[in-house]
Computed example of a mutant assay.
Amino acid sequence: MSHPALYPVKLADEITRQLDQLADHLSQLPTPQAARVIARVLDPDAGILGSITHLVATGSMFAKDQAERGALPAEVWLALGRATNELRDISLDLDEHKATLQHVGSLPTTAAKPPAPAPLVVWRRR
């Protein structure tokens, strides 16, 4: 029987491997399928980004507890807390574009007329 403490490490390694595999597939998908995958990944409630944010927030709670006990420096807890906040902000920024990604994902794979190129300089509000 394997040691129970090794399972989460193996799980993290497997998830990382699968994320790399997903990125490889994404780079080869037609536009509508890629847009659907991206929309799904970025979904703040049920997507990978939301799950990673939850994982980092859980790590932050762990680090806070350990910092209070003196087992970890407080800087570790603070860094994980900042990372959680940044991920939530990024998730909110990207959520604004969910409808666009879903629309592109619903288009047929072969469009009669290719879309017009768009300028890549966009003013961003904060």
Rank of each mutant, 00 (worst) to 15 (best):
P119W: 03
F62T: 15
W123L: 00
Q102N: 08
P32R: 05
A57E: 11
L42H: 15
A39S: 15
A34Y: 06
W123D: 12
Q28W: 01
L72Q: 08
Q21G: 07
D20C: 11
E68G: 13
E14S: 13
L78F: 09
E68M: 04
L92Q: 14
L101A: 04
E96W: 01
R124E: 13
A74N: 06
V122G: 00
I48Q: 10
L11I: 02
L101C: 00
P8Y: 08
R17I: 02
L29A: 12
T110N: 15
S60C: 09
R126L: 09
P117K: 00
S27Y: 02
D89L: 11
D93K: 06
S51P: 02
T16Y: 05
G81A: 14
A67Q: 08
R40E: 15
A99H: 06
N85A: 14
T58Y: 05
D45F: 07
S91P: 08
L92P: 00
P115A: 15
A57I: 01
Q66Y: 01
R125Y: 04
V37G: 00
K113I: 13
R69P: 00
A99Q: 12
A116I: 04
R88L: 12
A99W: 04
S60A: 15
R82W: 04
I52A: 15
A5P: 02
P32F: 03
T31P: 04
L22Y: 02
I48N: 00
G47V: 01
D13T: 08
R125D: 11
L101R: 00
L11P: 00
V76I: 14
V56K: 05
L11A: 11
P30I: 08
I38C: 03
Q18L: 15
G105T: 09
G70I: 10
K64W: 05
P30V: 14
Q33H: 12
D24Y: 03
T58C: 03
F62D: 05
P115S: 14
K64D: 06
T53D: 10
P114L: 11
H103K: 14
E68F: 00
L19Y: 08
V104T: 14
P114F: 06
R69Y: 04
R69S: 12
V122D: 03
R17M: 05
V37K: 00
D20R: 15
D24R: 04
H3W: 03
V37H: 00
P44D: 07
Q18T: 11
E75H: 11
G70C: 08
I15K: 07
W77N: 13
I90G: 02
A34T: 15
L101Q: 02
G81E: 10
P119V: 12
V41G: 01
P73A: 09
V56R: 09
L6R: 05
P4Y: 08
P115I: 13
H3Y: 01
L49Y: 03
R124Q: 13
A23Y: 10
P108V: 10
R40Y: 07
T53L: 04
T16W: 09
